[in-house]
């Protein structure tokens, strides 16, 4: 199982993501700079968090239009798994790989805290390491994580089991509709989420609830 991490200027969670993939997968991922011509032949492409291009215009908007995203789109269409965390989720949405929009948190504040996530679907490559109904801990750190989609899109997401993570126990940090923390595309090979599972993978982090996501993706025992 080979992975690549796409890096745009302004990201700041790329090293955390590379560390998580290396520790859990046992192999360092390929690192792809946004100006690289292509992505190596991998099974998993990860877009980490941060503030690509200063989040000018809209969060993720500029990165989503960069040429490397055409390559990500091509690979996704061929079934390669794509994971976007935080700014990575915003980029996938702006690139049209996932539906809806991520708006300013209803509190208007940057939230940096731990939330609870309910695992509401496990029939996909990303959350299959969890039990349906399981509540896990996960950190969040964002200003624009307030998920919004029109009623028709929401009905499709909910009806097709494309909302695998939902904020639980009153911990919705941003006002997301239906407490949505992460969504899948129709083929379930593209997953975007606002929380940072890569920041809760070992005892030194104070817990390892995020580990099962990467273990499942990288075909490793949790």
């Amino acid at each position: 199982m080979k992975a690549a991490v796409i890096v745009f200027p302004g990201l700041n969670r790329d090293r955390d993501m590379i560390a998580a993939l290396t520790k859990i997968g046992g192999v360092a991922p390929a690192i792809v700079w946004h100006q690289d011509a292509d992505i190596p032949d991998v099974d998993l492409i990860v877009i980490p968090g941060g503030f690509s291009y200063g989040d000018y215009l809209r969060c993720g908007a500029i990165a989503a239009r960069s040429p490397i995203m055409d390559k990500v789109r091509e690979r996704a269409a061929r079934g390669v798994k794509v994971l976007g965390v935080c700014n990575g989720f915003q980029i996938l949405i702006e690139a049209g790989l996932l539906p809806g929009a991520l708006m300013r948190n209803t509190s208007l504040k940057f939230v940096c805290r731990e939330v609870k996530l309910e695992v509401t679907a496990t029939d996909n490559a990303f959350t299959r390491g969890y039990q349906k109904g399981q509540i896990i801990r996960c950190p969040v750190a964002h200003h624009d994580g307030n998920y919004f989609a029109d009623a028709e899109t929401l009905a499709r997401l909910e009806g097709d089991g494309r909302v695998p993570f939902r904020y639980a126990e009153g911990t919705n940090p941003n006002g997301s509709i239906h407490d949505i923390a992460g969504i899948l595309n129709a083929e379930k090979n593209v997953f975007g989420l606002m929380p940072h599972p890569e920041n809760l993978i070992e005892a030194a982090h104070g817990g390892d609830d995020g580990r099962a996501l990467f273990a499942a993706l990288l075909d490793r025992a949790a």
């Binding site: 215009l57 809209r58 908007a61 239009r65 702006e94 539906p99 809806g100 929009a101 708006m103 919004f148 989609a149 029109d150």
Partner: peptide
């Protein structure tokens, strides 16, 4: 359509 507006919202 391509950049200035996010036509979802």
């Amino acid at each position: 359509e391509k950049l200035l507006a996010n036509t979802v919202i």
